[in-house]
Simulated scan of single mutants.
Amino acid sequence: LIGISFVLAASGGLLLSANNPHGAEHLQELLTGQLLWVRWQQLQWMAALYTVILLLWTFMGHEGRKFYVLFSLAVTVSVQVVGVYLVFASLIIPALIVRQLPNKKGLIIGYLVGSLAYGGGLLISSLYDLPAGPVVVWLLAVMAVKVHIMLSWLLKKSVQARG
């Protein structure tokens, strides 16, 4: 479903910008985001909507259709600011890194990797005048590989210590 959402968002952006003279610019914003140019009004609106989503998630439950409705609302809002690529990478990459860890450890490591990638990506982006979204995506991927190698090494050491 996440892959389908990605394809629909990307192709929908192409369709919406097809006859627009500034369509290429709008499409680039949709795909790569505008992290460095977000206005406070956008963040306030998003925070209010995310609060409603979180409340609905908490009190209505998050199984089946309810999850997908809430998830689609959150993704749609997120894409407007951070772009399709970054939303997709943020959903998939940290989850792949921690998929074999216990829930609590996995959440902590996933959030840590995501936070470091966003912070480092914004710093690199500003230092080298590069688009923030793609830099964060690549930093997420590089960190994922490094963390995966480190976790594999730690797991191997743990098994050797026991055996």
Rank of each mutant, 00 (worst) to 15 (best):
L1G: 12
I2T: 00
G3T: 03
A9W: 14
A9C: 03
L15Y: 10
L15I: 07
L16W: 14
L16P: 11
N19M: 10
N19R: 09
N20H: 12
A24D: 11
L27F: 14
E29G: 14
L35G: 10
L35N: 11
L36Q: 13
L36F: 15
V38Y: 03
R39C: 10
Q41K: 15
Q42C: 07
L43T: 08
L49R: 08
L55A: 13
L55K: 11
F59M: 07
M60N: 09
G61P: 02
R65Q: 13
Y68V: 13
L70G: 11
F71E: 03
L73S: 05
A74Y: 02
V75A: 01
V77F: 14
V79P: 00
G83N: 03
G83Y: 02
F88Y: 09
F88C: 01
F88I: 01
A89T: 04
S90A: 00
A95F: 10
L96A: 07
L96G: 15
I97Q: 04
V98R: 04
V98K: 06
V98A: 03
R99M: 10
R99N: 14
Q100N: 14
Q100W: 12
K104E: 15
K104V: 14
I109M: 04
S115C: 08
S115A: 09
S115E: 05
S115H: 09
Y118S: 09
G120W: 00
G121K: 06
I124G: 08
L127M: 12
P131F: 04
P131L: 01
P134I: 09
P134M: 07
L140S: 06
L140Y: 00
A141K: 05
M143Y: 06
V145W: 14
K146D: 13
V147N: 13
V147T: 06
H148L: 15
I149V: 15
W153T: 15
L154I: 06
K156Q: 12
K157C: 14
K157H: 02
S158D: 10
G163C: 12
